[in-house]
Design a protein around this nucleic acid. Structure first.
Lengths: 134, 134
DNA sequence: TCAAACCCTTCCATTTATGTGAAGGTCAAG
DNA sequence: CTTGACCTTCACATAAATGGAAGGGTTTGA
């Protein structure tokens, strides 16, 4: 598929996909006319890039971990240098920390919202106490 | 405590803490001489700011959610406008998505590392198969 | 007491990372 | 032969953070 369609299917823009290629994150094949040519797997790959970026990982790191987690089977296990492995272990641990941190804070927000809900319903009376729960 | 000490205890710099104050993220009390005066709770607050920023949340959002999750008891429940509540609900959900995404990818990395480990040990022989497991 | 270390504000410039806009040209299909 | 999608390239935008200088007050400890 061409760049426009991939952009559409991933909710991004052609511009952004070209930018990712420039950054070495998402290098496309080329068809005869010079157009970028993406196959189906690129859809998921773009989503992963977006997600990792939104989770605060820098492109430098994404570039390293993406080839390892894009392959369904661990076919490409061989091309892992010791440095890459070290990076991966480090990032795995960083992600674990980040997850714990986010869970704690998400729960704090949720708790606050619950508290607000009870306060509100106390203020108003006794109506709709459990309404609109998650 | 003064700004230098807070910086030291949070692994940041005075410069950054002043910057956060400028951004409305971390407004300090002032003692008589004009020096910023931080109490113990600011340590955790700084860590929360750092963590949320590293997790990809913009300052605009952090500014809104921080007052709600900093209070141990939900004392300050009252000063929540409907818009704030909407933001909080939205961010709670976004964080949930982010958590799920991170867990999936962290697990993918972990699985890859495990695969590498088995491959390596197959290559070498039968030694140290289950060593250094998480 | 006095110097070093710390603090203050303000201003301005720069860096890094992520992303967007637009100009000028090519390709393909109706 | 026009329209729309694509190409490259250069410039610009935004957010977070850093650095430094000017110019001046405060604390601390030798």
């Amino acid at each position: 598929m061409r760049i426009g369609q991939l952009a559409q299917r991933t909710g991004t823009s052609p511009r952004l996909l070209r930018y990712y290629e420039e950054q070495g994150l998402l290098v496309a094949e080329r068809s005869g006319n010079g157009y970028r040519d993406y196959d189906e797997r690129y859809v998921e790959r773009v989503r992963q890039i977006r997600g990792l970026l939104e989770s605060g990982l820098p492109t430098r790191v994404i570039k390293q971990i993406l080839p390892c987690i894009s392959q369904p089977g661990a076919i490409y296990v061989s091309d892992a240098t010791p440095e890459t492995i070290a990076t991966l272990e480090q990032e795995r641990d960083r992600m674990t920390e980040r997850i714990q941190f986010l869970v704690r804070n998400r729960n704090a927000i949720a708790a606050y919202l619950d508290a607000v809900r009870s306060t509100r319903s106390e203020d108003i009376g006794s109506d709709s106490v459990g309404a609109a729960a998650e």
